[in-house]
Amino acid sequence: MDINQVISRNLQQLRLQTNMTLGKLSEKTGLSKAVLSQIEKGNSNPTINTIWKIAEAFGVTYSALLESKRVTAQKVTLDQVAFQKDDDGHYRIGCIFPSNINRNFEMFMLILDPDSEHVTDGHKKISEEYLFVQEGCIEIVVEDTSFKLKTGDSMCFDGMVRHVYKNPYQRVAKVYCMNYYGNN
C-alpha cells in the first residue's frame, strides 16, 4: 500500500476513534483544514514535520501514522530486538512491541549491568510504567522512594516522574517494562 494511503487510513481511524473534527485537528496542529483534508483523502504527500504535528495532536507516536496494517498475530524473537545503549553502555533497552494506532503501550526489555544505574527524568506523555524482573535484582527510585525488586517481582508507577533504575548487585538484571499510555 502507498505510504500516503497508509497515512490517510490511519488519520481517518484516529479521527473516528477520538471523534475529532477537521476543525479541531486544525486548531491542535496549526495546519489548515484543506491540508488535513487532502492528507486524509490520500491526495497529499505530508512532510515529516506535518506527520509529527498530527501525531502530537492525537497523542500517538510518529510511527503510529505510518504503520501499514494491523497484525493479528506477531512473534518476536530476542535476536530481532534492537537494543540501544545509554552513554556509558551499562543500561540497554530494546523495544519488543512499539506503540501504534491500535496499541496504546510499548513493551521493552531492559538490561542493567552490575554496579550501574540509569536516570530518567520522566516521560513527557502521561503514562504508567509497569515492571517485571525476569532475572537478577534491581532498585527503582521513584521520586524519593526506593523499591527493591528481585526475580519475579513486579511494580508500577507514574512514568511522568523522575525515576532511577539501579543495579547495585553483582549480577546482570533483566527487566520487562511496559509503558502504558491509557486512553488519551
Rank of each mutant, 00 (worst) to 15 (best):
F83E: 00
N45Q: 09
F83M: 06
L66F: 10
K41W: 12
G59Q: 01
L78K: 11
I48P: 11
V71G: 13
A82L: 08
V71D: 15
E67M: 05
E67H: 10
D86G: 09
D88Q: 14
R70W: 14
I54N: 03
K69L: 00
S68I: 05
W52D: 04
A55F: 06
K85C: 12
A55Q: 00
A73K: 08
L78H: 11
T72V: 12
L65K: 00
L78M: 07
A82D: 11
A57V: 01
I48H: 15
T47K: 08
K85V: 05
V60I: 06
A73S: 14
L66A: 14
L66K: 11
K41G: 06
V76A: 05
W52T: 03
L78C: 02
L65V: 07
Q84G: 14
G59Y: 02
G89M: 01
D88A: 14
K69A: 11
K53R: 15
Q80T: 13
K69G: 11
H90T: 15
H90G: 10
T50I: 04
E56H: 13
H90R: 13
L78T: 08
K85W: 09
A57H: 11
K85P: 11
D86Q: 05
N49M: 04
I51F: 15
S44R: 04
F58A: 04
L78F: 15
D79A: 10
A57Y: 10
F58V: 01
L65R: 03
E67N: 10
G42T: 05
A55H: 09
Q74I: 02
E56P: 02
A64K: 02
N43C: 06
I48E: 05
T72G: 08
L65I: 05
V76S: 13
I48Q: 12
P46H: 13
D87I: 04
K53M: 00
K75I: 07
